[in-house]
Amino acid sequence: MIFTMILAGGKGNRMGNKDIPKQFLILGDKPIIIHTIEKFLLFNEINEVIALCPKEWLIHTKNLLHKHCIPESRVTVVEGGDTRHRTIQKGISFLQDHRNASSNDIIITHDAVRPFVSYRIIKENIEQCVAHGAVDTVIPATDTIVRSEDGRTLNEIPPRQELYQGQTPQSFRIGTIIDSYRSLESQEIEMATDAAKIALLNGKDVYIVIGESTNLKITTPSDLLFANAILKEGVVK
């Protein structure tokens, strides 16, 4: 089976709006999270979408799904955790406890605030995860990346052709990501930026799907302005 986890646990402080998390802000004529969920509902091979939200926003999320005619048979709203990793782990526990998910089943993890993920990116995540067990979506770095240990002086300028910027989805066989989480101490887990890093720390090979510049993460007011421009122009397929 194939499941999607929409990671919607963030509070959106960088958006400057403390009253509503960024995933519930309106993009065009509907909330960002609805745009995102709808992208995954295009795939019949995805058995279920799990939207992982803050506890205080569970009812609001369910109401939004109903308002936008998204069937309960395809999307389930579940309480997330207080960090990205705890949210993913809660999602895995839900699938194991309530969906009898096996180690060979696949989870596609995706940021709720990346509403422009394309059909191709999702399709290639599924295909590559079936083949390899762990996948990350990335785009080649266009700017020179520098490394500084103290924030004052440069330590290294790595070759740009070897560098990529991470996006989502990140997709895993459930057994692969469970083994990775279990192999690490809690401090190591919290220091890792995302689930792909967790898999790497456990010695897993993580394969690449090339993303797209339009697959942006909406985290600031300027991002939301840009996203509305993308939506208006209809440049994402």
Rank of each mutant, 00 (worst) to 15 (best):
I108Q: 04
T109K: 04
H110M: 00
D111G: 04
D111S: 09
V113Y: 01
V113P: 01
V113A: 06
R114L: 08
F116I: 02
F116S: 04
Y119M: 06
K123W: 04
E124I: 06
N125R: 10
I126Y: 03
E127A: 02
Q128L: 07
Q128H: 07
Q128A: 13
Q128M: 11
V130S: 13
A131N: 14
H132F: 13
G133K: 03
A134F: 13
D136K: 09
T137Q: 09
V138D: 06
V138S: 06
V138F: 12
V138R: 05
V138Q: 09
T142S: 11
D143A: 15
T144Y: 05
T144S: 13
T144P: 03
I145E: 01
I145F: 11
V146M: 14
V146E: 12
R147E: 12
S148G: 09
S148W: 13
S148K: 11
D150Q: 00
D150A: 03
G151D: 05
R152S: 04
R152Y: 09
T153K: 12
L154W: 02
L154V: 08
N155V: 00
E156H: 13
I157L: 07
P158Y: 05
P159I: 04
P159D: 05
P159E: 07
R160V: 12
Q161P: 04
Q161T: 10
E162M: 15
E162F: 15
L163V: 10
L163I: 14
Y164C: 12
Y164V: 12
Q165T: 04
Q165E: 09
Q167M: 13
Q167D: 07
P169E: 00
Q170V: 15
S171L: 07
R173F: 14
I177L: 07
Y181R: 01
S183P: 11
L184K: 03
L184H: 10
L184I: 06
Q187F: 10
Q187P: 03
Q187G: 08
Q187C: 10
I189C: 08
I189G: 03
E190T: 02
M191G: 14
A192V: 04
A192M: 04
D194V: 10
D194Q: 08
A196D: 08
K197Q: 15
K197N: 15
K197Y: 15
